[in-house]
Nucleic acid binder design. Structure first.
Lengths: 206, 206
DNA sequence: TCGTCCAAAACTGCATGCAGTTTTGTCAGT
DNA sequence: ACTGACAAAACTGCATGCAGTTTTGGACGA
């Protein structure tokens, strides 16, 4: 239920500011109001929707400033994860990362944004897990989830795929060398670039 | 309601592993089960309580490893906030931080752990706000809240107050000089020391 | 004494109803 | 036409009831 409503929000099916009234949602998913209520409360805790007493829940209106702060925080978090990954990844993890990364060159050439996006998510998850820190994994995953709708469009930008591959390459190389500082910096830069691209996109469309 | 139950958990009134059954809580707070249910769901989203289908919510059992990961993440977050604070704090913010810090020397001498703890919270909040990044503020506040019960006892350790003051001094000095790197390092070290102290404490008691 | 099984009690998940609040729509007065 | 007020509709918050699941406690047999 939570997942169902969250999907509607992040896919943009429900635009920011849209009211989410309990009865309509209940009817839509063919359940009673109670589970919908509880889901909305949970989404409120994840601040995906805003809630005020006696008012409908509304899809959070993400301001430009807020978006910027989230991307900046994301860059820092990824930087930390990459740095710790360079330091802590097991041999298997390093090898897995390297193999997956190398094979992603095919996706760049075939050029399907959807496929590359799926791979990209997996790549970043590997970095988060490689840091061997559960809380950091949670913070990074959570932040990434909230940014998802704003990153969605960016792989459609021409040339972004191969640039993304090059940036990943810098990260992977540094991690394989166990060069903490370089890995952290490379990941930080990578996210910062995505941030800039998305900011432009949002400014133009949203 | 959420606040009420959360308080019971973080104050340790409800020890980890304790079952939180809806009916008892409803009776305790003199409401019906519905608001309790919703509160528990929200607390689940904040992962303060664990939930499985058809089972009571239980106060999260924080493992030693998990605790360590949270302190480590906290150190990184504080480091980032301090670094950004050194870079971005307004003149007023810098002055406020400095003044509050200096006057906290009185609390060190009078030696009330409760008073110093309250000041300490405010000091750290200033660092988070000084980074001028809403999302980072949120992540730091959230992580800090979850660690609260484990930090609680540490100011009772002899000599910790004046050591804490010295560590704060290093942070403040670096921020006033706008020395990003030093500020980040000082804050990181500060939290790491608290982490060690708490780890010892938990190992001994919890 | 210990283990196993079964029935009763306890509890969760969901539906529904009611009271109180907010929103909407209409109509009279300007 | 436009504003204001007022009534109706819509909606939220909470209580309660029921069905289905889990837990508990005890009786029975080894």
């Amino acid at each position: 239920m939570v997942r169902a409503i969250a999907d509607m929000i992040v896919t943009g099916e429900m635009p920011p500011g849209e009211r989410l009234d309990e009865l309509s949602l209940a009817a839509r998913f063919e359940v009673s109001r109670t589970p919908v209520r509880e889901a909305l409360r949970e989404l409120g805790a994840m601040s995906l929707v805003g809630r005020e007493p006696n008012r409908s829940a509304v899809v959070m209106n993400v301001t430009q400033a807020r978006l910027h702060s989230m991307f900046e925080a994301m860059a820092e978090l990824e930087g930390i994860c990459a740095r710790l990954s360079a330091e802590r990844m097991t041999v298997d993890e390093r090898r897995g990362l390297d193999i997956e990364h190398r094979s992603s060159i095919h996706l760049v050439h075939s050029g399907s944004p959807e496929d590359y996006s799926a791979y990209n998510t997996e790549f970043h998850n590997r970095l988060y897990r490689g840091a061997h820190n559960d809380h950091l994994l949670e913070l990074a995953t959570q932040t990434r989830a909230r940014l998802a709708p704003f990153r969605r469009a960016q792989f459609r930008l021409t040339g972004r795929l191969s640039k993304s591959y090059d940036e990943h390459d810098r990260i992977v190389t540094a991690i394989l060398r166990a060069d903490c500082k370089a890995a952290g910096q490379a990941a930080f830069d990578h996210v910062s670039i995505v941030s800039d691209a998305s900011a432009v996109f949002v400014a133009a469309h949203g």
